[in-house]
Design a binder for these strands. Structure first.
Lengths: 109, 109
DNA sequence: TCGTCGTTTTGTTGAATGACAATATGATGG
DNA sequence: CCATCATATTGTCATTCAACAAAACGACGA
């Protein structure tokens, strides 16, 4: 039995040596639209979904979806206040991902 | 005239505040397949296209394409030796991208 | 000059993605 | 309880992407 068994991994979450969170982080920031969204968040600012939609010129539905993907990548967090949902940059998530990327860098370069 | 004009930018290279190189870096690493490829490169190792294809289980043509995208993101560099092309991790490119990401982190978190 | 070997490019196909409009959910005020 | 507002979800379409096979390059060596 020299065949290392595949170990049933979710597709898009293959064993890359990076943690699944970091993989999601990269996927999330791999999209120019989402990169643009992130640039709307200066120093700890909070924004509603509608605001993001307006300032990026995309529909409200699309903004909601993209923000969900960014949250999945631990790049933003959300907080509900009454009817509106506020998003903000997720410092801890971003730091964690960057740290892991950096440690990978040490192994390959 | 309170309409800020769009300023004709190449699609996928919108003004995100990140340099185009860093945007490409993120796009390149956003793919699980390419993440997997990168994990094949330990400490300064060089690999031919065929080797990458074999060790990832993808066709040689696909490997060549994906390596091209990784090179575009300044994550690998290539060197030709006779008929075979050797790829290796691009330390400088990766460091540059991570540095820029980190500096963005400071502005938003 | 031919073949051959490794790589790249091209053409094609199925799957994933990004966008929108329309509809559903959830919270709040009357 | 009903109307309304902000957000989330669903359905749909067009585009992009990943992968392959096949063909075109390019660099040797005979």
């Amino acid at each position: 039995m020299d065949e290392p068994e595949p170990a049933a991994v979710a597709p898009g979450t293959a064993p890359t040596g990076l943690g699944p969170d970091t993989q999601e982080f990269l996927k999330a920031l791999g999209s120019p639209t989402r990169q643009r969204i992130m640039m709307l968040f200066p120093q700890g600012a909070e924004m509603s979904v509608g605001e993001v939609a307006e300032r990026t010129g995309i529909s409200q539905a699309t903004a909601s979806q993209q923000l969900t993907l960014l949250r999945r990548g631990r790049i933003v967090t959300s907080r509900r206040e009454g009817k509106t949902v506020y998003y903000r940059a997720d410092r801890d998530g971003a730091v964690a991902a960057l740290t892991e990327l950096q440690s990978y860098l040490m192994t390959c370069c």
